[in-house]
Simulated scan of single mutants.
Amino acid sequence: MSPEDRAVGVAVAGVMAGAVGLAIFNPLTGGTASAETPAQAAAQHRESAVSERSGTEHAPRKAARSASRTVAASTVIKLAKSQLGEGESRNGSTKYADWYASTPHAAVTARRDGGSVGDYRGAEWCDMFVSWLSAQTGVKNMGWDAYTVQHASWFEKTHRWGDIARPGAVVFFDWQNGSRGGIDGIDHVGLVVKDNGNGTITTIEGNTDNAVKEKIRDKSEVVGYGYPDYAKSR
């Protein structure tokens, strides 16, 4: 989610002053943030009989049931590649934003950051795309958010943050300051496909020219990487 989007209320600039503290608090459980995916949290939300509901689909039941299983990075990358070319509708929304707005998390993050649940449908959606990948696959500790600064802060505070471009890592960018910048300046997020070994990485990103696209990015643009718990390759 870009600074421009924060300005319209979905993630207001005032949040940045408390970003680190908020990033490790999970309003769904009333404590510090667990490493749950959207599917896990949605299942917990239903089981707690919380009555926030919507008419569109939530994270699939299959993902909720299998959220504890170990998922390979290649599984998430494969799903991301299957979305290449997906873009915005005429009203500026996407299936990823529609999905996010339908989950209990939208109400939680809207209360945290300002704005309303409906704002997500026209908002910058790069992080909602990453959250959708997490929910669909049930990968552990990929986290969920619509605000890149909060998501990156969560990775850092849960000790899943670093500077190595591993396949399947969640990569965070700062277009102005690049690797010299900090988490509070992050503008954009995507998924690492591979390290090209020449100072660049191949990524798949939502909300790139209003679509899901594969890109070659210079590592100098990267603030850091978040690491989900993937199955160890054999």
Rank of each mutant, 00 (worst) to 15 (best):
residue 208 T to L: 08
residue 139 V to Y: 03
residue 190 G to S: 11
residue 48 S to P: 04
residue 27 P to K: 00
residue 5 D to W: 02
residue 211 A to Y: 02
residue 140 K to R: 14
residue 111 R to K: 11
residue 99 W to S: 11
residue 193 V to T: 14
residue 90 R to G: 01
residue 201 I to C: 13
residue 30 G to D: 04
residue 21 G to N: 14
residue 163 D to Q: 00
residue 171 V to M: 10
residue 199 G to M: 04
residue 134 S to N: 05
residue 223 V to A: 11
residue 136 Q to E: 11
residue 77 I to W: 07
residue 89 S to R: 05
residue 215 K to Y: 01
residue 64 A to N: 04
residue 147 Y to C: 02
residue 44 Q to E: 05
residue 74 S to W: 05
residue 35 A to R: 07
residue 17 A to W: 12
residue 4 E to I: 15
residue 101 A to R: 10
residue 70 T to W: 12
residue 119 D to G: 12
residue 125 W to F: 07
residue 143 G to K: 01
residue 53 R to E: 07
residue 177 N to F: 08
residue 107 A to G: 07
residue 22 L to I: 01
residue 162 G to I: 03
residue 168 G to W: 13
residue 148 T to R: 09
residue 197 G to A: 14
residue 179 S to M: 00
residue 4 E to A: 15
residue 167 P to D: 05
residue 7 A to L: 13
residue 25 F to M: 04
residue 97 A to C: 08
residue 33 A to H: 08
residue 16 M to I: 14
residue 65 R to C: 00
residue 17 A to Q: 11
residue 151 H to V: 09
residue 11 A to L: 01
residue 142 M to E: 00
residue 185 G to A: 01
residue 73 A to N: 01
residue 200 T to P: 09
residue 164 I to Q: 08
residue 155 F to V: 02
residue 13 A to Y: 06
residue 51 S to L: 04
residue 32 T to E: 05
residue 120 Y to R: 03
residue 146 A to N: 10
residue 14 G to T: 12
residue 8 V to D: 09
residue 171 V to C: 05
residue 165 A to C: 02
residue 48 S to T: 05
residue 28 L to M: 03
residue 44 Q to C: 00
residue 32 T to W: 08
residue 185 G to W: 09
residue 56 T to W: 06
residue 132 W to N: 07
residue 100 Y to C: 15
residue 119 D to S: 09
residue 117 V to Y: 10
residue 164 I to K: 10
residue 70 T to Y: 15
residue 125 W to C: 10
residue 208 T to Q: 10
residue 65 R to G: 05
residue 182 G to E: 07
residue 60 P to G: 08
residue 6 R to L: 09
residue 54 S to F: 13
residue 22 L to N: 02
residue 84 L to G: 06
residue 137 T to S: 12
residue 8 V to I: 15
residue 220 S to A: 14
residue 76 V to H: 08
residue 165 A to V: 01
residue 65 R to N: 03
residue 52 E to R: 08
residue 83 Q to P: 03
residue 117 V to R: 01
residue 60 P to Y: 02
residue 209 D to A: 04
residue 48 S to V: 02
residue 144 W to R: 06
residue 15 V to E: 02
residue 90 R to E: 15
residue 122 G to Q: 10
residue 34 S to R: 04
residue 157 K to A: 15
residue 166 R to I: 04
residue 5 D to S: 11
residue 21 G to K: 09
residue 138 G to L: 08
residue 215 K to T: 06
residue 173 F to S: 04
residue 51 S to W: 02
residue 233 S to F: 07
residue 133 L to H: 14
residue 124 E to W: 09
residue 16 M to Y: 14
residue 82 S to L: 06
residue 112 R to D: 05
residue 31 G to D: 01
residue 127 D to Y: 04
residue 158 T to Q: 15
residue 104 P to D: 13
residue 88 E to L: 04
residue 167 P to L: 00
residue 25 F to T: 03
residue 214 E to G: 03
residue 31 G to W: 00
residue 37 T to Q: 01
residue 226 G to Q: 03
residue 179 S to A: 11
